[in-house]
Computed example of a mutant assay.
Amino acid sequence: MHLLTGAGLPGPTAYTEHLRVPDLSVGTYVLAVGDVDGQQPHTEDEVYVVLRGRARLWTPDVTVDVGPGAVAFVPALEPHRFVDITEDLQVLVVFGPAEYSNAGAAT
């Protein structure tokens, strides 16, 4: 077992990884009101758990409002980003498999 110290809390950068094993990675993503989320599609599936704040999660097919307690699944390679951040956002992010594990397979 691993207790993920600091998971869900702001770190030194917008994204702070807390755990990496071959099948998954876990990190905290923090965006302030007015920030631009410049992330690109990932080669791994993602689950977002919104811990605090409010924004909208955009994909080409749908945009949804998210706030504390919202859980969203984004499949690998789907373009997505947080937009219209109205309250500082703290999100727990789970990648399966670990982030960048499939990066070579996408080329």
Rank of each mutant, 00 (worst) to 15 (best):
P97W: 05
G11K: 11
R20T: 12
V62D: 15
L77T: 15
V47T: 14
V74D: 13
A98T: 02
E17W: 05
H18A: 02
V83I: 14
V64S: 12
V83C: 02
V47K: 10
G27C: 06
E17I: 03
I85P: 01
V71D: 10
Y48T: 00
R54D: 04
F82C: 08
P97G: 03
F95N: 05
H2E: 04
Q90H: 05
V93M: 00
T43S: 13
G38K: 12
V33L: 02
Q90T: 09
A32E: 14
M1L: 09
F95V: 07
R81Q: 14
G34F: 14
P10C: 00
A55V: 08
V66P: 14
G11E: 02
A32N: 13
L57N: 02
Q90R: 00
L19H: 10
P41Y: 03
A72G: 06
A72V: 15
V30G: 01
L4N: 08
A7R: 01
A55N: 09
Y48I: 06
G53E: 02
G8D: 09
A7L: 08
L92S: 00
F95R: 11
A103K: 07
S25Y: 09
G6F: 08
P79C: 13
A72Y: 12
V21K: 07
D37F: 08
D84K: 00
L31T: 02
H18K: 11
R56W: 08
R20P: 13
V36F: 12
V93A: 07
G38T: 13
A32R: 14
I85C: 12
E44H: 08
D23W: 12
A76S: 05
L19K: 02
D45V: 01
G67C: 12
V83S: 03
V83H: 10
F95S: 09
V50P: 12
T28E: 06
Y29W: 09
